[in-house]
């Protein structure tokens, strides 16, 4: 069992996770509207922040590694990430020729 929460009395992990998710959200907002970066750099930046935030939710709120199936759960999410990249990037690339 990864996390035995019933010993803790204050939800530190959740509060840290929440603050981090707010920071990441506002950082994305700042990059998009106030950073003055080139469009491409902005896109890369905000996508990286979104991925970070997804990882944060998976580990701090959803406890993906928890339980005796933690390994399966983690491989499952990693593989689904692979599929998501293939479907999204693959479709954009393949369909880019259409005017």
């Amino acid at each position: 069992m990864g996390a035995n929460h019933h010993h803790e009395t204050f939800p530190w992990k959740h509060i840290v996770g929440f603050i981090l998710s707010l920071v990441l959200t506002f950082a994305a907002l700042w990059i998009a509207f106030s950073s003055g970066l080139a469009t491409k750099a902005i896109l890369v930046g905000i996508v990286v922040l979104a991925v970070l935030q997804a990882v944060l939710q998976l580990f701090m709120f959803m406890h993906v590694t928890e339980s005796d199936s933690g390994k399966i759960q983690t491989i499952n999410m990693a593989y689904s990430f692979f599929i998501a990249i293939v479907v999204v990037a693959g479709s954009i690339w393949t369909m880019a020729f259409v005017l």
């Binding site: 479907v87 693959g90 479709s91 369909m95 259409v98």
Partner: peptide
Amino acid sequence: MLWANLFWI
């Protein structure tokens, strides 16, 4: 053509 793309994925 997007249909063909999604269908074959």
